[in-house]
Computed example of a mutant assay.
Amino acid sequence: MTRTLAEPEEERLERRKPGGGVVTALLALVSLGFLAWAALRLAGMEFDRYTVALVALTPYALLTGAVIALLALLLRRWLTLLIVGLVTVALAFSVVPRAVSSTAPAQGVALRVLSINTYFGQADAAAIVDLVRQHEVDVLSLQELTPELVGRLDAAGLGAELPHRVFHAGPMADGSGIAARYPLRELDLLPKSTLAQPTALLQRPGSPPVEIAAVHTLYPMGADTYSRWRQEMIDLGQLRLTGTPRVLAGDFNATLDHARLRSLIGTGYTDAAAATGSGLRATWPAGWFPPPVALDHVLTTPEIAPQSFDVFPVSGADHRAILATLVVK
């Protein structure tokens, strides 16, 4: 009589799972990659250009975790489902609230702020002026403002719409500027930065004065630019809140998942996009590769209440323009 040895219980259960051990190993490998990616955001780990890039893609990590968890459920890999599911939920608590509006109608004076990175001054000047005119913009923040673009903006009629300006135009990405419907007095709020970041006091009749900063921190993805980007983000966070309403508008080269931007917001600012439920609307690139992320922001101090936020493509620019409607209380 032939005797058969009893198959070990754990091997029998593994064999019964769809795909067997090979699928288990592949799913575990993919899950480990996801967990490492998620850990960067959850632990606030940014230490070079590569981790900065991965953190910027956190909303895509959330989607990845959801897909892996669904696969683990369908394939009955319960431990993988538990671990990946918990981490995905943790990411969701970080990402989802920015897509839910927390604003309430506020009493005060409306202030419409438009900001755009003009891609080395190549953005369509007429399209920018059309946005200003169509949306009755009060303040325009321009990054990568070149002397040539200034000439084209003037030819398109910017001066008639926004006659007051503090422009620090420069070659390539160096320049930035602020144009406004009401008088501006140049300030010196920020330390010297790689790219121009002018600041000014907007003096509007019937409203408290408002400090405006055209933000453009250095692109952190170069071989030697991460540390400078980090320092410039820290410098923004060291701006003391004095009770004077303030708007920081521009290209921060950071998303709401970056620890440096979260630290800045934690000093007392509100992100207008997140407050109005538009925090997942991408602003760069203008196309679909690399995966679009939100690098451009309008931040406000407690004396200002965001009311709406929108995003617009502009021909010739690699960033989308952002428009925030605010109320100065």
Rank of each mutant, 00 (worst) to 15 (best):
2 T>Y: 13
2 T>K: 14
3 R>V: 11
3 R>L: 11
7 E>Q: 13
8 P>I: 05
12 R>P: 01
20 G>V: 03
21 G>K: 12
24 T>Q: 08
24 T>W: 03
26 L>F: 13
26 L>S: 12
44 G>L: 00
45 M>V: 15
45 M>Y: 15
48 D>L: 00
50 Y>S: 10
52 V>N: 01
53 A>Q: 10
53 A>N: 09
55 V>T: 12
59 P>S: 07
69 A>W: 13
69 A>D: 01
71 L>E: 01
72 A>F: 00
72 A>H: 03
74 L>R: 14
78 W>Y: 14
79 L>V: 15
85 G>E: 14
86 L>V: 15
94 S>T: 14
94 S>V: 02
95 V>W: 05
97 P>L: 13
99 A>Q: 05
102 S>Y: 07
103 T>F: 00
106 A>N: 13
107 Q>S: 14
111 L>C: 08
117 N>W: 08
123 A>E: 05
128 I>A: 05
128 I>Q: 05
129 V>G: 06
135 H>D: 12
136 E>V: 06
137 V>K: 05
139 V>Q: 11
140 L>Y: 03
140 L>D: 07
142 L>F: 02
143 Q>P: 02
150 V>L: 05
152 R>Y: 01
154 D>N: 12
157 G>C: 04
157 G>K: 09
159 G>D: 14
164 H>N: 14
165 R>W: 10
169 A>L: 03
171 P>H: 07
172 M>K: 10
173 A>C: 13
177 G>R: 04
177 G>E: 05
179 A>S: 14
183 P>A: 08
187 L>C: 11
189 L>Q: 06
194 T>Q: 04
194 T>V: 03
196 A>C: 13
202 L>T: 06
203 Q>H: 07
209 P>Y: 03
210 V>L: 13
217 T>P: 00
217 T>W: 02
219 Y>I: 05
221 M>C: 00
223 A>M: 12
233 M>A: 02
240 R>S: 13
243 G>C: 08
244 T>F: 00
247 V>Q: 03
254 A>R: 04
255 T>E: 07
256 L>R: 10
261 L>V: 01
261 L>W: 02
264 L>F: 07
267 T>H: 09
269 Y>V: 01
270 T>M: 11
271 D>M: 14
275 A>D: 12
277 G>H: 13
279 G>T: 04
285 P>I: 13
294 A>R: 15
295 L>M: 09
297 H>I: 12
299 L>E: 08
303 E>L: 10
303 E>Q: 15
306 P>S: 04
306 P>I: 06
315 S>E: 14
315 S>M: 02
318 D>I: 06
319 H>S: 05
322 I>K: 01
323 L>N: 00
324 A>E: 02
327 V>K: 10
